[in-house]
Design a protein around this nucleic acid. Structure first.
Lengths: 153, 153
DNA sequence: TATTGTTATACTCTATAACTATA
DNA sequence: TATAGTTATAGAGTATAACAATA
């Protein structure tokens, strides 16, 4: 691809696509998702699943709904995520003794093992993805994204 | 939020969600999409549609496939986008005289008018969305996103 | 009555395959 | 044969509504 969107004039014309925040966020996100998927494929997993594992890998195990809250997904969405983890023997549902409505999700040994390997891959992938940026800019980017992700406007 | 992910230790623990590039990109993108949708709703449009209008508002009108290429979507996806624009009388298909297989997409007067108003809303929305950031950081963020969106790894 | 997990269902977004009309 | 647009269809991803078990 050439694309070559000239950064020429301020232009009376409506901002070119690559100047739009919405377009940029969407496409960078897409590009990273692809990059990440390619890097994690050899481990038989993807960024989504690894994020779920990471959330569940706390000292105090979470119920499905608590995990859903941290992931920012609906509890009905969480069901399928846990189903998949269980099917791959990466985690298991345990009825909470304290409140028998709740499923406590426990990572299995292989779940923790996969998470550990995936985390190494993730760190490498992020580094490579950000490589086109000068290091200080990469740090500013990360900090800015953290700020914008948290902002509760 | 506190989070305070010290860049100190490599950390044995799996990075918290808000430290993950994938999570950050996804959630910032989602937040911006919501913000943008809310701002454009009074105009009866959304960021997606405005992006399509912006692409089509060139001096030399584009065919559907050319527009699809610039938007980064499939030509089959483009069909529905143009359908919607036509249904709202914002654009119209004109058979290309040069190559009768092609549809040239022409914006109507009201299409250009909507685009103009939407662009003002977009600029204001972007400014407000980035307001939590120091101005220099906002500029670095934009530049970094442009770099990462373009990088052809 | 309210909450947790579940299922069924639907909606959005997008792509692949196959058709048509042109070239 | 190849290309532009179209249609039908299917696959993610996610949410809403309703239900069972439990509180």
């Amino acid at each position: 691809m050439t694309s070559s969107a000239r950064p020429g004039q301020p232009s009376t014309r409506p901002g070119q696509l690559p100047d739009r925040l919405g377009y940029l966020l969407k496409h960078v996100q897409l590009r990273y998702a692809e990059t990440s998927a390619r890097a994690l494929a050899p481990l038989g997993t993807d960024g989504r699943e690894v994020a779920v594992l990471a959330v569940l890998a706390t000292d105090t195990p979470l119920s499905q709904q608590e995990a859903a809250g941290q992931l920012g997904v609906d509890r009905t969405t969480m069901v399928a995520l846990v189903d998949d983890l269980e099917a791959k023997s990466l985690a298991e549902r345990v009825r909470s003794p304290a409140d028998r409505r709740k499923n406590i999700i426990r990572l299995t040994a292989s779940g923790r093992e996969l998470l550990e390997r995936a985390e190494r891959v993730r760190l490498r992938t992020e580094r490579e993805f950000l490589a086109p940026l000068p290091a200080p800019d990469a740090r500013v980017l990360l900090a800015a994204l953290r700020t914008l992700a948290a902002a509760d406007d």
